[in-house]
Amino acid sequence: MIRNFGNKLGLAWWAKVETVTPAATYWYGPFLTKRSLNKNLKKFLNDLSDEGSIDIQHSIIRCKREEPLTV
């Protein structure tokens, strides 16, 4: 897949999402464009909120990411 290739090159866009409760870090991606990430991120954040996550913060990063995607 093109996204996976872009990720291996460090060109993929990711969202690093951190929550206080539960204390967790989630990596959401990879996306080919920042615009595509932003378009899809809202649903992911809403899902976390619906599952009871509290104090959700996120940042957008262009990088290479591997497992684990949840810490």
Rank of each mutant, 00 (worst) to 15 (best):
A24R: 10
L32R: 13
E66P: 00
E51G: 09
N4H: 08
G10Y: 05
F44D: 04
P30R: 09
K43P: 03
G6D: 08
E51N: 11
D50F: 09
L45S: 05
S53P: 01
L37N: 11
V71R: 13
W13K: 01
R35V: 14
N46V: 09
D47M: 10
V20H: 02
E51M: 12
S53M: 05
T70R: 15
I2N: 09
K8S: 12
T19H: 02
N7D: 04
A15E: 00
Q57D: 07
E67L: 14
E18N: 03
K42Q: 12
S53W: 03
D50L: 13
G29H: 05
Y28K: 10
W27V: 02
L37T: 07
L37W: 07
T25P: 00
A23W: 10
E18L: 01
T19I: 05
A24F: 05
P68C: 11
L11W: 06
I60C: 03
H58D: 02
N4A: 07
R35A: 15
C63R: 13
D47W: 06
E67N: 12
E18H: 01
K64V: 11
K42S: 09
S59N: 01
N40W: 07
K39E: 13
M1F: 13
D55Y: 13
P30V: 07
H58R: 03
Q57K: 09
G6Q: 12
L48A: 06
D47K: 12
L37Q: 12
W14E: 08
R65Q: 15
P22F: 11
